[in-house]
């Protein structure tokens, strides 16, 4: 916990704004890709234990499609685009015309479509973030895994876990047309900057943490 002591509500607001800009851009990209109205929810920025982070993804055992990017550059960290299985099936159908196969066993073309979708989404999120902060961000190629949330998220916590038992997660959910009741969540982004990255983000925006 000690590492995050100096993060104030004001800092969390800044991170929320980053989530806003990033996911807003990604929602626009998805909307164009699917020719559909896509909305985003107000980003949730919180300092959570690793167990709580799995709960945010529906519980450690909840099976999700996870597209993971390791970020290098001035803001090293981990980025996840998480999709519920039903939603992944729908995306695959919309993009390739293939009916959702048995869960967790997709065809090569379906996997590739999902990976590309993740790539477009994360790319638009990160380019917005990079424009806003003028920081260089280099995402890795997209890595995909369909498995229990606990299993697919923990590899992105290796850096954070060496410093703390908590992580700051910038969580943004995308939904199809929020006006209609009972809309389904299209997917969510978890951005988990490495502990050393927060300074860079705040400095780039002219905000300094008090000592």
């Amino acid at each position: 916990m000690e590492f995050y002591d100096r993060i104030t509500a004001f800092h969390l607001d800044i991170l929320r704004e980053i989530g806003n800009i990033g996911a807003g851009n990604a929602a626009t990209a998805l909307s164009k890709l699917l020719n559909k109205k896509i909305d985003m929810k107000v980003p949730d920025v919180s300092l959570v234990s690793f167990d709580e982070m799995m709960d945010m993804a529906g519980g450690a055992e909840n099976v999700v499609v996870s597209i993971f990017f390791r970020l290098e550059g001035e803001v090293p960290g981990s980025m996840f685009f998480l999709l519920p299985l039903e939603q992944a099936d729908r995306f695959i159908y919309q993009l390739t015309g293939e009916e959702g196969a048995a869960p967790v066993r997709y065809s090569e073309i379906a996997e590739s479509a999902l990976r590309e979708l993740g790539n477009i989404m994360a790319g638009s999120y990160l380019s917005a973030l990079s424009d806003f902060t003028s920081l260089c961000l280099y995402p890795s190629v997209p890595y995909m895994s369909i498995d229990m949330a606990g299993a697919v998220i923990s590899p992105g916590l290796i850096e954070t876990s060496q410093v703390s038992d908590f992580a700051i997660v910038i969580n943004t959910e995308l939904v199809e047309d929020e006006m209609t009741p009972g809309t389904r969540i299209n997917g969510c982004f978890f951005l988990v900057p490495d502990p050393g990255s927060f300074q860079a983000i705040f400095h780039s925006l002219g905000v300094y943490q008090s000592e």
Partner: peptide, 11 residues
């Protein structure tokens, strides 16, 4: 009692 842990990946 039983002991249980969920969602082991690289752990």
């Amino acid at each position: 009692d039983s002991l249980r842990t969920a969602g082991l990946g690289s752990c």
